[in-house]
């Protein structure tokens, strides 16, 4: 008997989500069991069965989330653009005042 991890896509285009596992002696029975257990009510658009031995698990957080600052990869780190736009606008206004004088 083998353990098969079951992944389900609930609608076309959606991600495959892990929903559980089945124990079965072979592929054919594994997919019958998976259908009976994980899609009795049309919940699955697609199923993936993966032999558990083939799943590579990584849980080491030093590897997955190394303790270095990586905010420069994220949009959120660039909120300063709002302030910078304001400063540039001010710059132009001052420039205009210098050239054309107060009016």
């Amino acid at each position: 008997m083998h353990v098969w991890e079951v992944f389900r896509q609930e609608q076309e285009g959606e991600p495959m989500i892990h929903v559980g596992s089945v124990v079965a002696p072979d592929r054919e029975r594994a997919l019958e069991y998976a259908r009976d257990i994980y899609s009795r009510r049309y919940e699955a658009y697609r199923l993936w069965l993966v032999p558990r031995e083939e799943v590579v698990e990584v849980t080491d957080l030093d590897f997955l989330q190394p303790p270095v600052d990586r905010t420069y990869r994220m949009g959120i780190a660039y909120r300063v653009t709002v302030e910078k736009r304001r400063q540039i606008k001010e710059m132009f206004e001052n420039l205009a005042k210098e050239v054309y004088g107060e009016s």
Binding site: V22, Y33, D36, R40
Partner: peptide
């Protein structure tokens, strides 16, 4: 009949968890 099938299905899901924790079926 559908309800009964669901209940047996629930047992299947839960027995899988127990097997994974180390107790054979």
């Amino acid at each position: 009949t559908a309800k009964i099938q669901d209940e047996v299905g629930h047992a299947q899901l839960l027995y899988r968890l127990v097997e994974d924790l180390g107790k054979p079926r």
